[in-house]
């Protein structure tokens, strides 16, 4: 493998990794605080991409399109909490998991009913790539990498640097104790679902900008997102972000060894191996026995 090919693979892997990190963060946040794996995360992303394309067509501005996508998807996530997931509080994780799979199908069916199966796309100026020591970097990739890095840091900052973040972490740690100390679940949950929606939306718009907007786009990213959430340590958002980036890089950099067809398999072999050696995940801690 020449150095240029390696560099290009690393760039592609980093972008893919940031995307998995965003989806993984949305999954991990939900698991940490609401305590179930949200299978509708992928379809939140799909919704965001379609909302972004529609808003861009309407306003003519990509920025307005992306902003509307974030707002609408945050609204969708909050609505799904209020209308669906709130009713499962205190139940085992199977019930909300199944409900989230149902919600995922519902969202996609409603979407395809109205907009069909044809592909859509964002309108972005297409520019030649910049060659950088043999590595080809597209201008849009720099934007996407920057935006997703800022989003990831912002979400983690809310979680670790603000009072509401501290309350969210308290609920994640021990819901009963949090309630006993007077933390109101309502504000925490509404903030949580807003963050989940926003995170999914940035991921969805980013995916749509890089590729094309089709109904299955988000669903296809769900498995890597779950893998990142598990690899990072279940319920550990920082771990999910690092694991997502690692998965993207490993997939891309394993290409010279296994070719383009089996790179996904390699990343999952790595996932299994990591979990065998370190069952709690990269940054997770072993679940204490109560």
């Amino acid at each position: 493998m020449s150095a240029a090919v390696g560099l290009n693979l690393a760039v592609a892997g980093l972008i893919q990794g940031l995307l998995i990190a965003l989806a993984g963060l949305a999954v991990s946040l939900c698991f940490a605080v609401a305590r179930f794996p949200n299978a509708a995360t992928g379809d939140f992303m799909t919704f965001a991409a379609y909302a972004g394309v529609a808003a861009q067509a309407w306003t003519g501005s990509l920025l307005a399109g992306a902003a509307s996508a974030v707002l609408l998807t945050a609204g969708l996530a909050v609505a799904s909490y209020v209308l669906v997931f709130r009713n499962f509080r205190g139940r085992s994780l199977v019930a909300p998991l199944i409900a989230s799979i149902g919600l995922a199908f519902l969202l996609r069916s409603v979407l395809t009913f109205f907009v069909g199966f044809d592909q859509h796309s964002f309108h972005v100026p297409i520019a030649r790539a910049i060659v950088f020591a043999g590595a080809r970097v597209r201008p849009i990739d720099l934007w996407l990498a920057g935006t997703s890095a800022v989003t990831l840091l912002a979400v983690l900052a809310v979680l670790f640097l603000t009072p509401i973040g501290r309350r969210m972490r308290a609920v994640a740690d021990n819901p009963e104790l949090a309630r006993a100390s007077g933390i109101r679940a309502r504000a925490v949950m509404l903030t949580l679902w807003t963050l989940i929606g926003a995170c999914s939306a940035v991921g969805g718009v980013m995916l749509g900008l890089q590729t094309v907007v089709v109904p299955e786009m988000g669903w296809n990213l769900l498995l890597p997102a779950f893998a990142a959430a598990v690899l990072g340590g279940v319920g550990n958002p920082t771990g999910a972000v690092l694991a997502g980036i690692a998965l993207g890089l490993v997939q891309a950099l394993s290409t010279p060894l296994v070719g383009f067809t089996y790179q996904t398999a390699i990343s999952f072999i790595l996932l299994i191996a990591t979990l065998v050696l370190r069952p709690q995940g990269l940054l997770g801690r072993a679940e204490p026995v109560r």
């Binding site: 693979l9 080809r136 786009m217 296809n220 290409t255 383009f260 067809t261 790179q263």
Partner: peptide, 12 residues
Amino acid sequence: VVYEPNRTSYAA
């Protein structure tokens, strides 16, 4: 070159 569906980039 045989490629997989659903990749975000086919640059490599």
